[in-house]
């Protein structure tokens, strides 16, 4: 474990908790893409199947449990409890256009052709594009609430910190996982446009509005 990965994980946890709290306290999921949250729940489910078969550390196991619980709680709030506030008309990104190619790629490019490894690879590839429905929704509505922007900043920042973690691990222990690195770079690049707007606008208290 290194500081980059730890801060990255905490940023990820903060994003997840922030979103869950926002939906719960405002009792509304307006402006939130349910599809992205479904994809994140799928990402955690397929990545953490080793929860019961391999133990890395208490930290690792507890974070996995927290991520899975929060992901499903968020999906539940969006599609069940506050579904009346779910914005169907703007959450129209075709998620199947993400899941199918990613599923195919996971079969073709992976470290080991075993069910657990293919699912882990699927989860890595899917996570890199899972935010697209949310970014698409913001570009359609033309704006995002500031809390949603903070959520996206933390979420985008976590994988950017992981890239630094991978650089650090490569130089300090010669470890690198090309699949995770390439997917992590794609994921972070997707946020670049948003990062620019966030830094130039939200920091100064303006509302974030993506070019429609």
């Amino acid at each position: 474990m290194n500081v980059f990965r730890l801060v990255g994980d905490l940023s990820h946890l903060l994003a997840i908790i922030m979103l869950l709290k926002k939906i719960w306290s405002s009792r509304s999921c307006a402006g939130i893409s349910g599809k992205s949250q479904l994809l994140f729940a799928l990402v955690f489910t397929t990545r953490y199947l080793d929860l019961f078969t391999s133990f890395i550390s208490v930290y690792n196991t507890s974070m996995k449990v927290i991520y899975i619980l929060c992901a499903y709680a968020t999906v539940y709030l969006i599609y069940v409890k506050f579904k009346a506030t779910y914005d169907h008309n703007h959450d129209t990104f075709r998620a199947e256009f993400l899941v199918v190619p990613v599923g195919g790629l996971a079969f073709l490019v992976n470290h080991d052709f075993t069910p657990l490894e293919i699912l882990w690879t699927f989860s890595i590839y899917l996570e890199s594009v899972a935010i697209m429905p949310q970014l698409f929704m913001i570009s359609k509505t033309g704006e995002a609430e500031s809390i949603t922007s903070h959520y996206l900043f933390c979420l985008g920042g976590y994988r950017a910190l992981y890239i630094i973690n991978w650089l650090y691990r490569f130089y300090s222990e010669g470890f690198f996982d090309l699949i995770a690195i390439v997917a992590g770079c794609v994921q972070t690049i997707l946020y670049c446009d948003f990062f620019y707007l966030y830094i130039t606008k939200v920091i100064y208290g303006q509302k974030l509005s993506l070019p429609a």
Partner: peptide, 10 residues
């Protein structure tokens, strides 16, 4: 070995 196969990152 078993160690490498495990993904130790979240």
């Amino acid at each position: 070995n078993g160690e490498e196969d495990k993904h130790d990152e979240l």
